[in-house]
Design a binder for these strands. Sequence first.
DNA 1: CAGGATCCCTACGGATACTG
DNA 2: CAGTATCCGTAGGGATCCTG
Lengths: 101, 101
Amino acid sequence: MGLSKGARKVLKVLARRGASEVLWALGKGSARFSDLEAVLRLSPRTLAERLRELHLMGFVDRRAYAEVPPRVEYSLTPRGKRVLEFLMELDRVVETLEEVR
Amino acid sequence: MGLSKGARKVLKVLARRGASEVLWALGKGSARFSDLEAVLRLSPRTLAERLRELHLMGFVDRRAYAEVPPRVEYSLTPRGKRVLEFLMELDRVVETLEEVR
DNA sequence: CAGGATCCCTACGGATACTG
DNA sequence: CAGTATCCGTAGGGATCCTG
């Protein structure tokens, strides 16, 4: 009974600061660390942590290029896209809830 | 861009300890404080806080009876049922994600 | 019974400085 | 550029005791 352990874990990660914003931003296409940092107004510490978590859950792909200066591209995996769609649905659900109010 | 403020707030509340479990339990019918406390293994402090939050968001209805000893019945509102369905869908989504792995 | 009050520990996250 | 390391304040939540 209750949510599965996996679902609770996903829920927790998505609720952390910047998580949904990262997914949303990557939904528009791949981006670099500094791009995300600028757009999302997150400290590098938090952004790095969030990207690591999302990567570990298989929602975000990380591609590093051996250049100078270094370049790292982040993008959504198919799983990430699925979760992003879910978030968008949450948005719609909450919207209809407001109407009912 | 990004989730609406309201959606982020809902997400945060749902991710907190015991929140989804409370909704899930109430999905089976109304229950009293002590019922929930026993089933969910939450400290009274946390359970009370969670119920207050869910009530404030309009997901849970609180009905107190002026008896001795006191009796309080909690139940889902229509909005609460809608959110619970959403959580159940998260469960299914995460399940399919595991398969893809 | 249904909580509130208090104490206390842990996790989260910002600011700043530093590095491969 | 893409992070990591450190310091530190705030929020979440358990344990315990108390009360209308």
